[in-house]
Design a protein around this nucleic acid. Sequence first.
DNA 1: CGGAGATGCTTAACATGTTAAGTGAATGCG
DNA 2: CGCATTCACTTAACATGTTAAGCATCTCCG
Lengths: 172, 172
Amino acid sequence: MAKRPADPISASAPAARQVPMRDFSRSLPMSLLRAREAVMRQFRPSLREHGLTEQQWRILRALAAIEAAEVTELARTAFLLGPSLSRILRDLEARNLIERRTAKADQRRSMVSISKEGVKLMASVAPSSEAIYAEITRRFGARKLAELQEMLAELERSLAELGASDEASAEE
Amino acid sequence: MAKRPADPISASAPAARQVPMRDFSRSLPMSLLRAREAVMRQFRPSLREHGLTEQQWRILRALAAIEAAEVTELARTAFLLGPSLSRILRDLEARNLIERRTAKADQRRSMVSISKEGVKLMASVAPSSEAIYAEITRRFGARKLAELQEMLAELERSLAELGASDEASAEE
DNA sequence: CGGAGATGCTTAACATGTTAAGTGAATGCG
DNA sequence: CGCATTCACTTAACATGTTAAGCATCTCCG
């Protein structure tokens, strides 16, 4: 371990290295980011061929699994923020991949569902998508993949309560 | 593709599930995305207080560790694409947090380094950032954290050759 | 009733992700 | 040399992430 003389900011040094933080390439956020990018890099070309972005694909998949959903529910399922979802739904609707109608009970809510065309598009993308996922599983190992997912889920649980309230040195 | 028989799925009928994919909320990309978001949610408020985005912070951290770097090298270290980095460097330079000058040997390259002000800003952010990281480590467990990072690194390695089939062989 | 507040969604504004094209400076090769 | 090619960025264009505001609609309570 490189030990370091405790001297935060010496007023005239050559400007760098006074703040001894962990090597940030090994920080958890970076690890997660790089891993995710390594995975998504496999899928993007195939999605792109079909004229879909990653997020549009997430929405179609979410909708295919449930008959219809409110926008807020869909946002939670596809893990998208409201504003992003709003824009994407507008575009997907213009492409006739989804359908939308306001609920009769509550005029504020709008119900979203996948269209016939949307289902067709999914059917054309799914095979190559599944093949890629299978190849990733084969390379990394099915058992290790399951372990990894479990650890990720537990990480989420560990931090679930933390984010709800405010944190160190909140506002000002 | 083969024409398909009358589609049983219509806009008003229940069930649009003829493509049986995995529950996508358990897909690897989603797991990684959610885990990363759970982590970043802890850091964003603190960074925001200091007027920094996550990416700007990555760049400052990278620069603090290495005197000076070319833009391309910095992009690799901070895991940012060229265009994003270009914009961010422009902004950070306008805020006097970094300095930039073109190399004499090769007029195409520009050397970037953190400024005195940048170092000061880092020093003001680092403590709370480290505290948050420590809390995350405490909650999840230091050992498990190390295991997780190792698995993520291995996942990266597993997929390294796959996505870059014709351009792999120039790394140290 | 009725208006204050909550709710569901959209727009706005700014920053980044992503791909493609542009620009000026080196390099290779005839 | 001459010049096409490569290289190191930068710009451009479009899509999403992120926060704050805006706008209807709905709920609740006096």
